[in-house]
Structures are given as structure tokens and as C-alpha cells.
């Protein structure tokens, strides 16, 4: 599905990712974790070609991303970015319909009936049918995040990339979003790569975790293998206690104060 080989990329002269390589299989739910500045967002940008790579390459469904036209790529990969730069004065439905653009013809001017149906379907799927006519600006942070995900789903992608979809949300909305992603992954066979800061949440939902450290792939594997106290202490430079969830035996990461509070 997604194949990354020896990827080197960065901003201008500053190299952020150094020789990163891994593969993601169809239908997988993969989490990307790592400290601030370790290159998580950069990795997502490189996967979708927003940041050109200096070395190595990314291929999706066996085709290099630079061999595809932008539209073709946008039909396969949808991205939910972190804190989008302000929102346009549109209603929720208008906003979600923007996700249909990659499927439009060059000179297409209006939505087709099928586009409207798809938008309706993803709104039902994400449980926001009731918000249809509301303006994006009027929505709460949690509702907005779901609307952003719905717009990405309207692209009908094969691969969904998300950058910290649970940031700034309360615990209820965090679970709501992650459950939604898990459901989409299981029932729609959608491949998901998600950047997460909350290690416990990452361990709870992801099939596999990719731990980035200073732009390199530090560890990749099952949550139980990646989220060990030694690995986290080494990469995040802070002491933690790792426990297990009562159900399912997933790792729970508890912070430990450095000052002995």
C-alpha cells in the first residue's frame, strides 16, 4: 500500500528526516509517535508530496508519488492537517463537498448529484448529519475536527493521513475521534497513518507504531514492543512508568515527575 525507502527530506537546507524507510500494508492502522521536532509532521508531508524529498522515495499502491498527477494522488490519499489555517465562511455541507474536488473534471463547475450523495453519506458515517447547514465557525473544536475528517473521507481515499487529530480535545472527543477512525479502518478497510502525541492513546488503537527520534526511525513494531519504559525514557528523556490496561493488556504510560513531587 505505502512504501517508503531511504527518505531524506527537510525545509530548505535544514534536513529533518534522515534515511527513513518502512512499509504499511493495506487496511493497517499505524501510529507515528516521537518527541516534538522529531519529524512526524514532516513525514506526513513527505508522504503526500507536499515536501519534495531530497533522496529516497515514496510509493503508493506501487506507484511513485511523483509519477502521479496531483489529482490522481488526491484521489488516493487524503490528509487531515494539524490546526488548519483558519476556516472559510462556508457551511458544513459546502465544506465537505470541497473534498470532492479531486474527482472533478478539469472544467467541471458544479457538484453532481453523486457528489452530494457522497457528502451525505460521509456525514452520516461520522455522525454529523445534524450539522449540515451550520457554519464551520460556529462549531466547537471537537465538532470541527470531525468535520475535517469527514471532508477527507469525501475524497474517498484509500489512505488517510492525520496529524494529531486529538490535539486540544477533551477526553470524550479524543475517544470519539479514535473510535471513529478505528471503525473506518475496520469497516471501510481504510488504511490509516496517524501522528499522535498521546502515547497511551496510540498504544490503545494502533496496530503498529513508528517511533521517530531526531529524524530517524528509532523503532517500529507492535505497541507492546515500542512502548517500553526504556525506549520512552531514552527518546523522550523523561522517566515513565508503563502499566497495562485491565482489558486487552495494552500499555499505559504514566509520567513520573523529575522533581519527585
Amino acid at each position: 500500500m505505502l512504501e517508503i525507502k531511504g527518505l531524506v527530506c527537510g525545509y530548505g537546507k535544514k534536513t529533518v528526516l534522515r534515511d527513513v524507510g518502512f512499509g504499511v500494508k493495506r487496511g493497517e492502522f499505524v501510529g507515528v509517535i516521537g518527541p516534538n521536532g522529531s519529524g512526524k509532521t514532516t513525514l506526513l508531508r513527505a508522504i503526500n508530496g507536499f515536501l519534495p524529498s531530497t533522496k529516497g522515495g515514496v510509493s503508493i499502491e506501487g506507484k511513485g508519488i511523483y509519477q502521479m498527477a496531483r489529482r490522481e494522488l488526491a484521489q488516493k490519499v487524503a490528509v487531515v492537517t494539524q490546526s488548519p489555517e483558519g476556516v472559510p465562511p462556508l457551511s458544513v455541507e459546502e465544506f465537505i463537498l470541497l473534498g470532492r474536488i479531486p474527482h472533478w473534471g478539469r472544467l467541471q463547475l458544479l457538484e453532481t448529484k453523486q457528489d452530494v450523495e457522497t457528502a451525505g453519506r460521509v456525514m452520516d458515517l461520522t455522525g454529523i448529519g445534524g450539522l449540515k447547514g451550520r457554519r464551520i465557525k460556529e462549531l466547537s473544536g471537537g465538532e470541527r475536527q470531525i468535520v475535517f475528517i469527514a471532508r477527507a473521507l469525501a475524497q474517498e481515499p484509500h489512505l488517510l493521513l492525520l496529524d494529531e487529530p486529538t490535539a486540544h480535545l477533551d477526553i470524550g472527543h479524543q475517544v470519539l475521534i479514535m473510535d471513529l477512525l478505528r471503525e473506518l479502518n475496520r469497516e471501510q478497510a481504510l488504511t490509516i497513518v496517524v501522528v499522535l502525541h498521546d502515547l497511551t492513546l496510540a498504544g490503545l488503537y494502533c496496530d503498529r507504531l513508528i517511533l521517530l527520534h531526531e529524524g530517524r526511525l528509532h523503532k517500529i513494531g507492535l505497541p507492546i514492543d515500542v512502548l517500553t519504559a526504556e525506549v520512552i525514557e531514552e527518546v523522550y528523556r523523561t522517566a515513565v512508568t508503563v502499566m497495562e490496561t485491565p482489558v486487552g493488556g495494552r500499555p499505559v504510560i504514566l509520567p513520573v515527575s523529575q522533581k519527585g513531587v
Partner: peptide
């Protein structure tokens, strides 16, 4: 202008978002 209206709609989300929607 009317034909570029679609692209402008995408661009109203921000340059990166428009890029992800397949806009050059």
C-alpha cells in the same frame, strides 16, 4: 474567474490543504 472559483474554494482552506485536494 468563475472556472477558477473551484480552485479558489480549495485555496480558501489554505495552501497546504488545497495541495492535498489535488490543486497545483
Amino acid at each position: 474567474g468563475v472556472f477558477f472559483g473551484v480552485d479558489l474554494n480549495a485555496l480558501s482552506l489554505g495552501e497546504e490543504e488545497a495541495f492535498h485536494l489535488g490543486v497545483e
